[in-house]
Amino acid sequence: MSCEEAMVTNVISITQDKTVADALALFEEHSIRGVPVLNGGDRLVGLFTIQHVLRRLLPEAAILKDQPRLRNVDVSLDNFHGSRALVAKRLKSQKERTIGEVMIVPDTVLPDTPLREGIRLLEKYGSPIPVVEDKKTNKLVGVITSQSIIRQLNTMEEAN
């Protein structure tokens, strides 16, 4: 079984020049949590998810996991009460940024990538994972999401 069989093809996407506010409106409108970023045509250039928004609401000092000796440390923000204004201010400034500034370059799968590899990547990086026609052109053909895979597996089980 390949990723092609479990992917969603009517993908909602965004372009790099749009803002975070635009993306958040898309998330709300379509009840989704992430969008592939396209170059204006059908070429995949990045990924932007709600997870990235959440990360940017936190102070940098609380998320230094890549620093040596801080890997095992959770800097708790439990002691900071009354920080609502700070978080709101940060969200406001994030909303104005363009998607090109804040997107990440995601791991992708090909349509014939085995589904188990797709599940492994979803577990590692979170949903969605873009499916591209080939890694050179990066032409987006769909996305696999946690739900799309479970749905496909359920359908197969019922058919059996």
């Binding site: 102070p59 940098e60 000092a61 609380a62 620093q67 040596p68 801080l70 900071f80 920080s83 700070l86």
Partner: peptide, 14 residues
Amino acid sequence: VIIFGPLIALICQA
């Protein structure tokens, strides 16, 4: 410094 640096930054931010 690795322990106190991030905490000082958070306190100052607050």
